[in-house]
């Protein structure tokens, strides 16, 4: 169950194009698992920005000098994240978490490939740690537009058995996309499972590559969210259930981690006509 707490900023570090922010959040790290996310209030209590910003957990430390802390990574992409980037240590932050469903972990020590795009690699680092503890082989494929938008490659290098890097402009690693190198990595590492987090187009490509090889994939999506706790229905995407039926499911409570083969990638952004309860009659309910 998530909790709502007022935390204090411990540190805000610039890493390339991103900020990694550590916040005290009593009660949150104890419950948090890789893949969970936080919803952070922005702009202060009288702000004209009413909605929380959601961030995947990059680190959770139940015990430390500052008590329980959580860390998340973000890029400034609007007024809310711009405000957040200006917070300094000691500033207060209202945090709700942990939210969502975390990555499922394999029962046996398997070979796992973790694919991250941009700051989407943030939740993959704590995941890698847990997988290593379980005796898994961990391979990373990290990509971004350019080297300053690459995240976690230094951590990954330390932690992983293998690391492949791609950038669109060739400023680091191979020029190209993660999907260009992924098939060879899966082959070479004899991977049993694929985990991914990043932009939708990347998740779709990764899910397809895994599916072609009969490998299970777990992907963390990023949908726009108004509440993050399951009450508003803004964050939906079409997902096939165990019964074979497509439903518009909430990515904040039923996700953000989904089986890659269950997401109807071609229909994201729409309500496919075969979805349960798809609107067939005219009329535009608000």
């Amino acid at each position: 169950m998530p909790v709502q707490v007022t935390g204090e900023v411990v540190s805000a570090k610039r890493i390339g194009a991103y900020t990694a922010m550590t916040v005290t959040a009593p009660g949150v790290p104890e419950l948090a698992r890789p893949g969970h996310f936080l919803a952070v209030q922005v702009g202060g209590p009288a702000s004209s920005m009413l909605l929380r910003r959601a961030f995947a957990l990059y680190d959770m430390s139940p015990r430390g000098v500052y008590g329980g802390t959580v860390q998340f990574v973000f890029a400034v992409s609007g007024r809310g994240t711009a405000w957040l980037a200006e917070r300094r240590s000691g500033d207060r932050l209202d945090v709700v978490g942990p939210l969502g469903r975390p990555f499922r972990l394999p029962a046996h020590p398997v070979s796992a490939t973790l694919v991250g795009g941009g700051y989407g690699s943030a939740p993959l680092l704590p995941l890698a740690r847990v997988l290593r503890e379980r005796g898994c082989r961990v391979s990373f494929v990290l990509g971004a537009g350019s080297v300053d938008r690459l995240f976690g490659h230094l951590d990954a290098k330390r932690m992983a058995d293998t690391l492949a890097v791609t950038t669109d402009d060739g400023s680091a690693g191979e020029r190209g996309r993660v999907s260009d190198v992924l098939p060879a990595v899966l082959e070479r590492t004899d991977s049993d499972v694929v985990y991914a987090c990043g932009p939708m187009a990347m998740l779709r490509a990764v899910s397809d590559i895994a599916a072609e090889r009969g490998l299970p994939s777990q992907v963390a999506v990023e949908e726009s969210m108004a509440c993050g706790i399951g009450v508003c229905m803004t964050c939906v995407l079409p997902v096939v259930g165990d019964d074979g039926q497509t439903r518009m499911v909430r990515s904040c409570v039923e996700g953000p981690v989904f089986r890659g083969d269950r997401v109807r990638w071609d229909a994201v952004g729409t309500v496919p006509p075969d979805a349960v309860g798809a609107i067939t009659a005219p009329g535009a309910h608000r």
Partner: peptide, 18 residues
């Protein structure tokens, strides 16, 4: 009922539209 296509929400000054 499955509702409408996404995006379903935008933040606006002191409000939102859904």
């Amino acid at each position: 009922r499955s509702g409408r296509a996404t995006p379903r929400m935008a933040e606006t000054p002191s409000g939102m539209i859904n």
